[in-house]
Design a protein around this nucleic acid. Structure first.
Lengths: 340, 340
DNA sequence: AATAGCACTCTCCTTCAGTGAGTGCTAAAA
DNA sequence: TTTTAGCACTCACTGAAGGAGAGTGCTATT
């Protein structure tokens, strides 16, 4: 893999990313003045194909990058674009705006990033289940309804509405609250399973039935299923990509976007790596997304938890732009959620 | 418009709904034994076209229903399908399941209805802003964060996290809470604008600055924009409709689905009518959705508020199935939210 | 008033040749 | 040995032409 091969590969990938059309030897020689003739380029292209970096849709067409080609491009060739001041300002403006409840914030964030990148965005929420419980509160709303709010060390608030089958007076509730606070405060959220809760319930022998019911509701409300919400935005952007003119491909992708579990799987797989990573084409699980890539980036929240953002686009993605963008955004988010 | 014309129109629309292909005179005569020859049918079809109920894609093709034709079908011709026991059970099962926080419930509801109908579903949440304020609570979480929860007469809870720029002690907060409760309790939510809040703030002269800030945050948090959340589900279903093989049409529709404001507009327009109503093709505003219809249905929530569900599909929609389905679902929801 | 017959229209499909972009190979030049 | 020019070849794409098929509209007949 000598220097000229790299130049040729770089040129082809850049051109293909820009045009979505197979790139011919003549075009490379012309646009990216490498000082050699098309014939020479052809030889190099032939070599690159043999090495697995390029593909040919049919014998008399130009070349397109293979997944492996993109991988090499991302790892070794591309020159990262530097964010413009304008973009930086825009990001600051949009991310610093009133720190809402997590839910709203995530939704806005998705929309904003999808506008910025022109790709589809998927996010998973910082998992409440992973911090330590800091404060637990019951608010009696009326005889049957109680609002349960939980604050974790990560600074996240999660609130759930509990429908009680029997009425409870405020005093009993207060006692229960104090007890739970005392027993559960400082514990890891994920330890709050039925077993532990039941232990507590044994202590409250007086109103055993009530306690049991409250605890069961709590357990249910805090289940991971409820916990790890998935957000998406900018699915529309997929429709503008020429590679997804085909309805069947679109069906695959939109099908995935409506299944939260699949998205989680997709994002979690890459989350272990710190910072920003890329999965290209076949590197994605399932095989249904062979023409897609995702840029996955995590940000830290207080308490050592991570939240994850994924940008989904065609393999022919603007990596040199998208990757720095996501790195910057997640570092901003880490800042935002990292300081109290 | 004699009986036979109606039979012919009915037959054509039923056939077109089933096949999405222009319907010819021969096909009508064969499948829907009307006891007359294709030639006779042709004459009737020609008349129906003159009356505006049918259209012809080109001279030598069969006929397809016009928007007006569908309208006549929905209003006068169609035989409503009766829900099967299976469907009724399924609906019961899915709607009665644990009454979660509104948010989660709405999301699940959207998904469920889109699966049931095979169309795209849009919902707007019961508007918190339309009930009366019943109970207001501050929960101090730490020095800077306060959780504001509001219960309305409709039985809905809405909670918002407030970030205070200065720290507040619990006692002051309690005083403020009591005062707000006293002054604002029983007031219509939509009256809770800055003016009224400021009035309150004048009463709290001691800690004026703090109060101002809290109130401003409250006002912001309760703004209608935050209030009227829009949910969608089953956008994927659109991709299976043959009329939306065309990417540009899809873009229009998906574009709309990502704009909450447009959806609100769409649903609100029809909401005034009680019960279930249908908007067909050009009857929809904007002109971008000329091949779509929506079935809009509202359900009542305690306190006289209404929430709205819209089912979006092609004009060639299974009206006889979808309309009864939506009527049943909304009546179930009214039941569910109507009883305490 | 309903129907059979028939010419006519228009789309869709297939075929076919022409065009152009691009390759791969070979032989000559550097 | 590497690079280049030349050239034949391949293959997708386009547009024209022709045939098939579905369906209509008109007219004459029942």
């Amino acid at each position: 893999m000598d220097e000229r091969k790299r130049q040729v590969l770089n040129a082809i990938i850049k051109d293909y990313i820009a045009t979505a059309e197979p790139v011919g030897s003549r075009a490379v020689a012309k646009k990216y003045a490498l000082g050699v003739s098309p014939a020479t380029i052809r030889n190099e292209m032939s070599d690159l194909e043999e090495l697995g970096y390029l593909e040919q849709p049919h014998t008399s067409a130009g070349r397109i990058p293979s997944d492996r080609g993109y991988r090499y491009f991302v790892d070794h060739l591309m020159e990262r674009e530097v964010l413009t001041d304008e973009e930086i300002n825009l990001i600051h403006l949009n991310l610093s705006r009133r720190l809402n409840e997590v839910d709203t914030f995530m939704r806005q964030c998705c929309q904003f990033i999808s506008q910025l990148t022109n790709y589809t965005v998927m996010m998973i929420m910082p998992q409440v289940g992973k911090g330590k419980l800091e404060k637990i509160t019951f608010i009696p709303l009326n005889d049957n309804q109680v609002l349960l709010t939980i604050l974790t060390t990560s600074g996240l608030v999660s609130s759930r509405l509990l429908q009680l089958p029997v009425s409870v007076d405020a005093k009993s509730l207060k006692i229960l609250e104090d007890l739970l606070q005392q027993k559960l405060g400082g514990k890891e959220m994920k330890e709050l399973n039925v077993t532990l809760l039941r232990e507590v319930s044994n202590l409250m022998s007086r109103q055993k039935q009530l306690v049991e019911q409250v605890l069961e509701l709590m357990d249910q409300a805090l289940s991971p299923q409820e916990d790890e919400r998935v957000f998406t935005g900018g699915a529309l952007n997929m429709l503008s990509q020429p590679e997804f003119r085909d309805i069947d491909k679109l069906k695959n992708i939109f099908g995935l976007l409506e299944e939260d579990d699949k998205i989680k799987q997709l994002l979690m797989q890459k989350t272990r790596q710190r910072g920003t990573s890329v999965a290209i084409g076949q590197e994605l699980p399932g095989g249904k997304m062979k023409d897609c890539s995702i840029v996955v980036s995590s940000y830290q929240v207080l308490g050592g938890m991570t939240a994850t953002i994924g940008v989904l686009g065609p393999t022919r993605m603007l990596y040199p732009k998208t990757i720095p963008l996501m790195e910057f955004i997640t570092s901003e988010l880490t800042d935002l959620f990292g300081r109290k």
